[in-house]
Design a protein around this nucleic acid. Structure first.
Lengths: 338, 338
DNA sequence: TTGTATGCGTTATCAT
DNA sequence: ATGATAACGCATACAA
C-alpha cells in the first residue's frame, strides 16, 4: 500500500450511498438529521479515520481563524514567553497561532509577512526586526486593513495598535536606582539606535542623570546589536575610558550577560567596581553571580493585551489604533546593591 | 471602505476581459503566452496588489510543501535553536515550517499533531513531550504513512527515523570526568523516568561508576521534571543525605541552573564541595559563576539531519526507518575542575 | 430529513 | 496563444 490518499466526505458518502451534504452535516453535528444516518456516518468516519481537510474548510469559509505572530527571535525568553502567552489568549478566543522568526532581518520579516498573508492569516502580532529600517511592508497591511498589533519593538512612524511598556519611565527608575546606590559616572549600553524602544530608554537614562544633577556624556553611551562579540568589545571600550563608569545600564539582559562576562574576565567586581541594572528580567538573572537587577516587563499581560487589541480589530469593522502602556517593575538583586 | 475582500485572478480576468486560465498562466510565468497580455496582466496584478491565495493553491495541488515541527517548549535554547536549524534546512529544500509547543503536555501534543495533520502538513519532526506516556497518536501517523522524524526525546517503542546523540556514552564521559577530578560520591539528577533519553543517560552514569570501581546507590539518583521548585527540593534532599555527594551529574542545564542556585543558597561551594557536570551546553553555562561544564549536542547538525531524514521519506515512496546518532563533546568549564 | 447545485481561488486538461 | 470546464474538499442555499 502506497502513500494512501486521505479519506474525504465523498468517500464516506460513496460507501454509505448517501450525499456528501448529509455527511458534511452529520460530521458537523447539525441538528436536522436522522439519528440512524448520523450514527452510521460517525461510525464509518471513525473507522476510516476520516480527517477533515482544514485547507478546504478555510477556503470555503473564507476564514482561517488564525493569527500570525512575527518574532525577531525565539531564542530569548522574553519572546518565547510572549509567544506562549499569545497562544494561550488566542486559543481561548478560538484562534490558532502561527509563528515565525525574522532573525532580526528586514528581508525575512517582509517575506514572512507576505507568506502568512498568502496563507490567509486574519491578523498580525508583530515585534519588529532590528534592521527594519522602512515600514512599507507594514503599511501595506494597514492599507489592506489587516488587523495588526505591534509589541515591544514598535515605531512611532506607524498609526497602529501597540502594546508596550513605559520605557522612558522604566529607564528613569533603573538609572535613578543606580545613582541612589552611589554611582557617579553612569554608562549606558543601548540597543540599535533606530529602535524606538532603545531611544525611549535612552531618554529615561538622560532624564535621570539631569534630575540628579549628573552630566550626560555621549562617550558613555554605546549602541550595540545584541551579539556577544560586539557587546564584549563595547563593554571593554567603555571600561578603558580615562574615568571608567561605576554604573552601567544595559537595555537588554542579553547585553548585560555578555557585559558581565567581559567584566569578569578583566577582574572587575560587580557591584563593587561597577553596579549594573538591565532590562527584561530573564530567568537567568537570578542564576548569575552576582544576581542581576533587571526591569521586569509583564509578559503575560503583554500577550493578553496584544491578543485583546487584535481581536477588537478582528471582530469589529475597523477601529481606531489603540496603545496599551503597561507598568514595569525593577527587580532589585545583587548587581546593583552596595 | 470596509474590510475589502482580497483580489483574485478572477477580478483581474474580469477587468482585462480575458479568461482566468490566461491570468493564472501569466502569473505563474508559463511560456505559451503573448508578451502583451502577459505584461498587461502583470501590471494590473501589481496595481491591484494581487496576492495569490495559498490555501487554494495547496488545495488544488494537493501539496503544502510544509513540515510540522512539534517542540516540548521553545523557552530553552536547545529547542529554539533546533527550530532555527530545521527552518534553515527546510527552506533550502523549498519547504516551509510550522511549529508548535506542547508545553510538555501529552494532550497538547496529540491535539497539535492532529491540527497540523488537518492543515495538511506533509511530514513531522517531533521531540516528545515529558508526559507522553502512550504513542498511539504517533502510531497513527505511521499507519497513515506520514513521514516522521523524532529527535532528542525519542522512544524505542516506535519504529521511526530518529536523530539523537549517544546519550549513554555522553553520560559515561561526563561521569568519568567527575570521577577523574576526584569525586567519590556521585549523584545524578535525572529527568523524568519514562523518557528514554533519561534512562540512557542514567545507564551511562551507572557504567561509569562501576568501571571506576564505585558503587551505584539508588538514593543518590532522583528524577525531576524540569521545574525550578521541584529541582531545588530534590537538590536539597540530596545534600541532606548522611554522606552528601561530592559530584553531581544533571541531565539538563535547566536542572543544573536550579541546582546551582539551591547550593549557592546553602553556602555549598562549587566545585570545591560539589563538582557539577550537565547536559545541553546552553549559552548561559558560560555566564554562570562558576561556569558550568556541560555536554554539547551538535544542534545545527541535528537540525540538518532531521530534515534530511524527513526529506528522504517525503521524496521517495516510503523507506526504512533510519537512526542517526551524533557525537557529543564535553565542554569543560570551572564547575567540574579541582 | 436528505439531495442537488453552486461556489471558495486556483490549477490543469482539453479544446479552439 | 487563449478559453471553457472540471477538479481539489468542503459548506450551504435551495429543492424535494
Amino acid at each position: 500500500m502506497n502513500k494512501n490518499t486521505p479519506v474525504t466526505i465523498k468517500d464516506i458518502a460513496l460507501v454509505l450511498n448517501i450525499s456528501v451534504s448529509t455527511v458534511s452535516r452529520a460530521l458537523r453535528g447539525m441538528p436536522e438529521i436522522h439519528p440512524d444516518t448520523k450514527n452510521a456516518i460517525l461510525k464509518l468516519a471513525e473507522e476510516m479515520d476520516y480527517q477533515p481537510n482544514q485547507l478546504a474548510k478555510n477556503l470555503v469559509g473564507n476564514r482561517t481563524k488564525t493569527i500570525g505572530v512575527i518574532m525577531p527571535t525565539l531564542s530569548y525568553y522574553f519572546f518565547s514567553s510572549m509567544l506562549n502567552s499569545i497562544e494561550e489568549a488566542a486559543m481561548q478566543a478560538g484562534y490558532s497561532v502561527i509563528v515565525c522568526q525574522t532573525n532580526e532581518s528586514y528581508l525575512r520579516e517582509k517575506a514572512q509577512i507576505q507568506n502568512m498573508l498568502n496563507s490567509q492569516v486574519e491578523g498580525f502580532i508583530i515585534s519588529l526586526a532590528c534592521d527594519s529600517y522602512d515600514y512599507e511592508h507594514i503599511n501595506r497591511l494597514i492599507r489592506k486593513q489587516i488587523p495588526l498589533v505591534l509589541f515591544d519593538r514598535y515605531t512611532d512612524k506607524l498609526e497602529v495598535s501597540k502594546v508596550i511598556v513605559d520605557n522612558k519611565q522604566a529607564a528613569f527608575k533603573a538609572t535613578s536606582h543606580l545613582i541612589e546606590n552611589g554611582c557617579k559616572k553612569l554608562s549606558c549600553l543601548a540597543g540599535p539606535p533606530h529602535l524606538e524602544i532603545s531611544n525611549q530608554r535612552l531618554e529615561g537614562f538622560k532624564e535621570a542623570l539631569s534630575s540628579h544633577g549628573l552630566l550626560y556624556d555621549e562617550r558613555y553611551v554605546s549602541h550595540s546589536d545584541f551579539t556577544q562579540e560586539n557587546t564584549i568589545i563595547q563593554a571593554n571600550n567603555m571600561m578603558s575610558l580615562a574615568v571608567p563608569p561605576d554604573g552601567i545600564l544595559t537595555m537588554s539582559d542579553r547585553i548585560a550577560f555578555s557585559t558581565m562576562y567581559a567584566l569578569k574576565q578583566k577582574g572587575i567586581k560587580i557591584p563593587e567596581d561597577v553596579a549594573m541594572v538591565s532590562f527584561n528580567n530573564e530567568p537567568t538573572c537570578m542564576y548569575l553571580t552576582p544576581s542581576l537587577t533587571s526591569v521586569n516587563q509583564p509578559i503575560r499581560e503583554m500577550g493578553t493585551q496584544s491578543v485583546r487589541l487584535l481581536l477588537k480589530q478582528l471582530e469589529s469593522d475597523k477601529i481606531e489604533p489603540e496603545t496599551v502602556i503597561l507598568d514595569t517593575q525593577l527587580v532589585i538583586r545583587e548587581s546593583s546593591l552596595r
